[in-house]
Every structure is written in C-alpha cells, then in structure tokens.
Design a protein around this nucleic acid. Structure first.
Length: 670
RNA sequence: GGCGGCGUAGCUCAGUUGGUUAGAGCGUGGGAUUCAUAAGCCUAAGGUCGGUGGUUCGAGUCCACCCGCCGCUACCA
C-alpha cells in the first residue's frame, strides 16, 4: 500500500534571490521527495513564495512598482532558480492567493471562536511623514547602551544589546529619516500559552529531533507569550475580517501558505483537500531551518490545533550553511546566488556535495571549496561515471551493445549491491544522506574492483562471451548504483537510463537484473570541475553581491561623533564628583560592582559594569565622576541610582574618569 | 554568566547496547597497469580518539571537572 505523503519546505521571502544557503533546505527536501516517489509512494511537494509584509511593500515602492508586480517578478526568478537545481515542486505557489486569504480568515476566525485571540492596545512606532507604522528594523538610531550609531530598532550590532525602538537615542525612520512618534493602537494577539500542554505533548511524542526538543524546553521554561498577529495599515497583506486598517502579520499567513499551495494543487488535480491535508492516513512533513523553529514548533502547530486541523507528523530541522568554515560573506564572495552557481558549475555537483554532508542533525554543514572539488571529481566522475564509461563503450563498440547473461561471479557482485538496498532506503528515510552517499561510494568501489579483477580489456581479445558477462555484471551494477543515486542526481540518472535503454528506475528495479538486453549509445555523464571555475564564481559573487560597497572608509581611528547638541542639552545632565565609600562584587554577576558613593553628603547606590577592570579595593576612597540625575534603573541585581563615567571599549579595558586634586564630593561638573 | 551543541588521522567524516591491534573517503609517498573523463587497482605513512581524574576486568564509547570553538540568552544605565 503506497504511502500518501505531503511535504513542504519553508517559504522563501519574496524580496531577494535564492542563494546556496537556501538550497540546503530545498535540496534536502527534494532528495527526500524524489526518494519517496522512487519507492512508489505518492509524495507531493508544496512550497510557495512568502510575499507579505513591510519589506516587500517598501521594496516595491522603491522600485516604483506595485507589490503585486514585485512578487510576480520574484516568483519567476525563484522558480527559475529552483528549476536549475532540479528541485521539483508539485506546486510552487504564492501566499498572495485567494486560497491563502480564505484559509487565513478561516483559521483566524476559528481561533477567535475558540477564545484564543486577545485584543489589546500596544504602543507602536509610527512615521508621520511615511504615514505608516514602523517595524523594529525600520527604526534606526543610536544604541542606548554603547552609543553605536545607526543601529536597528530591536538590537545593536555593535554591542548586542536588545531593546525597543523607543529606547533608541535619536530614533529616525529608516526610510525618510523623520523622527517617529509613539502611537497607541489595538492589536490582535494569539494566546499561545493556551496550547502549552498540547504543544508539550506533541513535542514529547517525537515531533522533532531530540536537540530541537531540548531547545523548545528552554522556551517552555521561559514561558510562552502572546503573539502579536496584527499590523496596522498601510501593510501588504490580508485584511483582518471586520477591520478596515488592520492586517494579518506576515508570519501568520506564511505557514498557512503551505495549505494554500496544497489546496490550489488539489483544485487543479481533482483531489480532496480535506483528505489530503487532514486525514490521518496522509502523512505530512515540514522541512525548516533552525532559525524558524519557534514559528514552526510552537505558533504553527498551536494555530492548527486551535483551528481544528491536523499537525504535521514531523518537523525536520536542519542547520545553516557555512563556506570554508565561515558564515557566508558578501565581501568574501561566498554569498553565492543559485543562479551564479548554476552559471559556473553543474548544479548536480552541489546536490551531491550537500547530500554527502547532510544528516538528520541540526548542525551546520560546511561547503569547503577544495573538499567540494575533490568530492565531485573523485566520487561522481572517478567512481560512478567512470564505471559506466569503462564498460558501456566497450560493449557497444565490440559486442554489438548487447547485454548477455550474468555468470556466477557477476551475479554475486550484483547481489551484494542489491543487498545494500535496505540500508540505503533507511538512510534516505531517516535523512542520513551522508550515510547513503558513503554506502553508495563503497559499492562503487566494489564494482570498480570487480572490473579490475575481470580485466575485460584483456579478455575482449580472447574471449568475447566472457567479456560480455563481465560487462553485463558491470552495467547491472551501474544500474543499481543509479537507482540508489537517483534522488540525489536525477539528471545523471536520466542519462544512465537513456544509455541503458530502460524506463525510469525505481527501488523496485533493484532486484530485476538486466540481461539479454540491447543498450543505447553511451553519453558522457559528468564533467570534472577544477578549482579555477569555483574561484571565478566567487569573484563574480563578490561583484554582483557588493556592487555599491564603495570602499569602506578606512577603519576610522575614532568612532564617528554623535549628532550635534547644544549647551542646553548638556546642562540637562547633572554630573557630580563623588567618592567611593564601599565597593563589592555583586553576587551572581561577574561584570558588576556594587558601589556606594558619597555625593557631597548624599549617598547613592550604583551598579557599575567595571568588575572586569577594577578590583573593589582599588576603588574605595577614590573620586569618580557621577551622572547624578540619570533615572534610576532597576536591574536583575538591584536598582542602580545613576552611573559613573568611564571610557574604553569595555571588558577589561575600562578607564574611570577622575578629577584632578582639589575636587571634593558633591561638586558639579560643568 | 546561564542553557544547548560540538571537539576522532592534513581535510571531510564513520564508530552500533563500553569489549580483541580505532575505521572510510579525499589528499600525500611508493608500486603494478591502461578498458575508462590522468579515471580505476594494490600498497605505505599518518591519530596519546580536546585535557585531567573517576566508574569498570576493560572506555573514543559512561560520570565529574577543565579547556577550546559555535548557537541562543543574559547584567555592563
């Protein structure tokens, strides 16, 4: 009984091209889907462009086109990129579709009826000149912690601080530069915590890999928070039913896009969507990257539960791609677009390389350039292609292209290769493609050794029929290897099938030998690659990815000055000389010291982040500059009533400011 | 700092429930060949399995601590 399987990959966002990092997931998924199909199962692979949200609205605006035009163009580009890598979706759809709108409204309505939707006011950042609410990333300003300029509204890239856009010093709209205002607005929230027990049960039942479950456990411990699922207009997305100016947050309708893609397929192919998606007999699997675990392991199943839909059988989480051991980098040229790769190298080389590295773990995989070149040439060319190339032409040229019968030794070889089927099937099924690749490569070694032992190039001169038997075994071995490799190398497999003159091969064909059979003409199966090609590709990636990367100003000796202020701004600060009365470490904090200061008869408690640079005893008795009218700040370890001034990059390099001799506690600094 | 992950030959990785001299591929050295996309075959060198203790008759495999990377998160007001 064939299995009925539905598979999805995460939806790529429609504001940029597909790169080789994306491809890890689509190739992992595509290989799995092709494997299932080769096993005779019905396996449907659905995906779509994720098309909503502020970034797309603004990209379109910048390009002077409508969002619909933009996502139409990107959709064509994405599809073309996937085609280049032989990623075979059964439907590659879009979240900007009537099916998705309808399903989003349906799920929202059901969640609302289930009491899982809350409404309450939030403070949002709003740009009056752009007339739109600003997502965190669209507010830029100076980091309130380290003073780095031009940081995003959610976190600082320089010091790693996280905060709210309203905490930024001199916040401004990233688009127009205007100062945003705060605005109250009612938002819709999904009460995720209502599903905590069911989510925990789901995870406990093996919904994800173990390491993912551990991570989720941390989140459960931290507590599940309500999820803000609405955005005020203008916004490119779906309006919330009954609202005039509120839209579903892009992350709400994105996963629903999986269903929409499936439904669209069903409508075009006369299948029942309800059965396909929701019946227990149908299996459902999502492939995602580890960066979006929260959405797919918590929000998404909770939404489905609340709306009365089945959750996926499994969520397969994979890691990121690094290149030569480092994060992909535009300046190093390792931020390689799918299209660029395909222009310079055979996409199947990447399919094979990724497969040889992929397991079911969440660890990152590395694309080592030299390793990649070696593996492609050694395995695909040296082992697989060569096995065909050293036997096919001889049979065609000297023995009329006709396979004979297997002799005992040949049958033994073929049976050994066939015996590996179960392990290979298990490897594919369990996403351990690395083990599959190792196993196939070992089998190819065995077949090559067989050829070596039988010396067909020698026997052809004296015993054509024995040679025919040898080549029959060799090509039967090639046939089995091809079946095993087919999910990974579909085009390679097609060439072999054409040359062997057989119908597309599936796993069921492993046990059927090819005897007394006329083969076709041999065609070259794969081109070896050299490192030059890869280097050229990296160069091109540098250019295309960082065109306007005007030579960065030589690393400035000093950080840039902050925007100008007036004396009026300065006099708002009350800076005083203070004497350190006591200084002691803070229990549980390794960077903080608890100081009690004498500010001219008044005492103040300060938690200062200088423990890495100063020992408590070095501080007692000395004079420091104290920022006296800073609003007290409640911290994990107590309240700090001001700060003492210091300079330096932090860590062990912190240098306190001090007055010259003669100053006394309480004096104002001006 | 907390939580999680990782650390096995030059490189990429296997090492099942702890059990004989720790494996493969690539790369490197040597050799015999030549059918084949200078591919294939044979062979050699190369590892104190991150470190230190412990449990055990026996540990790469279990435990503790430590070191080094990576991720998430947190306190430098």
């Amino acid at each position: 009984m064939p299995r009925q399987i539905v598979v999805t990959s995460a939806l790529p966002y429609a504001n940029g091209p597909i790169h080789i990092g994306h491809l890890v997931e689509y190739l992992q998924t595509d290989i799995w889907v092709r494997f299932q199909k080769a096993c005779g199962n019905r396996c449907l692979y659905f995906c779509a462009d994720d098309t909503h949200g502020t970034p797309i609205m603004l990209s379109a605006r910048n390009a002077g086109i409508t969002p619909e035009e933009l996502i139409g163009r990107i959709h064509r580009e994405h599809k073309a990129d996937f085609d280049r890598f032989y990623i075979e979706f059964d439907n590659y759809y879009t979240t900007h579709s009537p099916e998705n709108r309808q399903l989003s409204e349906l799920i929202f309505t059901r969640l609302d009826q289930a009491g899982s939707i809350a409404r309450r006011d939030v403070e949002q950042t709003y740009c009056e000149s752009c007339k739109m609410p600003l997502p965190d990333r669209y507010v830029r300003g100076t980091c309130p912690r380290c003073g780095a300029t031009d940081q995003y509204g959610d976190s600082c890239e320089a010091c790693g601080a996280t905060y709210q856009p309203k905490d930024l010093i001199e916040p401004r709209c990233a688009t127009c530069g205007a100062t945003p205002v705060l605005q109250r607005s009612e938002h819709y929230f999904f009460k995720l915590a209502d599903y905590e027990d069911r989510l925990k049960a789901l995870i406990a039942a093996g919904h994800t890999q173990k390491s993912v479950a551990n991570k989720l456990d941390e989140w459960f411990k931290a507590g599940l928070k309500d999820w803000d699922i609405s955005r005020d207009g203008p916004y490119f997305g779906f309006k919330i039913p009954g609202e005039e100016n509120k839209y579903f947050y892009v992350w709400l309708d994105a996963p629903i896009g999986y269903m929409a893609s499936a439904r669209n397929y069903c409508e075009r192919h006369g299948l029942d969507f309800e059965t396909l998606w929701n019946s227990p007999e149908n299996e459902l699997y999502h492939f995602i990257g580890k960066d979006i675990m929260y959405f797919h392991a918590l929000f998404w199943p909770a939404m489905l539960m609340g709306a009365g839909f089945k959750t996926a059988n499994k969520l397969f989480v994979h890691g990121f791609l690094t290149v030569n051991g480092e994060k992909m980098s535009k300046s190093r040229g390792t931020f390689i677009r799918a299209a660029t790769f395909a222009r310079h190298l055979d996409p199947e080389s990447l399919r094979y390389y990724y497969a040889s590295k992929l397991t079911d773990t969440v660890g990152d995989i590395d694309l080592g350039i030299e390793d990649f070149v070696n593996k492609t040439n050694a395995d695909i060319v040296g082992k697989y292609a060569n096995l065909a190339s050293r036997s096919g032409p001889m049979l065609a040229g000297k023995l009329g292209g006709r396979l004979g019968r297997l002799d005992a030794e040949g049958r033994q070889l073929v049976e050994r290769l066939a015996a590996a089927k179960d392990a290979i099937v298990a490897g594919y099924e369990g996403l351990d493609y690395a083990a599959v690749a190792r196993a196939i490569s070992a089998l190819a070694d065995e077949a090559n050794r067989y050829v070596e032992a039988r010396q067909p190039w020698a026997t052809i001169k004296v015993d054509p029929e024995q040679t025919r038997a040898t080549l029959t075994a060799t090509l039967n071995a090639m046939k089995i290897l091809t079946i095993y490799l087919r999910p990974i190398l579909p085009k390679f497999a097609e060439k072999v099938e054409r040359f062997l003159n057989v119908e597309p091969l599936g796993f069921a064909d492993v046990d059927r030998t090819l005897e007394d059979h006329q083969i076709g003409t041999f065609e070259r199966l794969f081109e070896r690659i050299d490192e030059e090609q890869v280097q050229t590709m990296l160069e091109e990636s540098k250019e295309s990815q960082a065109p306007q990367a005007a030579p960065e100003p030589e690393k400035a000796a000093v950080s840039p000055f902050k925007p100008e202020v007036t004396i009026d701004d300065f006099v708002k600060l009350d800076l005083r000389i203070a004497k350190v009365l006591t200084a002691e470490p803070v229990e549980g904090a390794d960077k903080l010291l608890h100081l009690v200061l004498d500010v001219g008869g008044v005492e103040r408690n300060v938690l200062a982040g200088i423990a890495k640079a100063y020992k408590p005893e070095q501080l007692v008795g000395r004079l420091v500059v104290f920022f006296a009218n800073l609003k007290p700040r409640k911290m994990k370890f107590g309240t700090s009533e001001g700060m003492i001034l210091a300079c330096g990059p932090g860590g062990g390099d912190v240098f306190l400011l001090a007055p010259d001799a003669g100053a006394t506690p309480g004096l104002a600094v001006s």
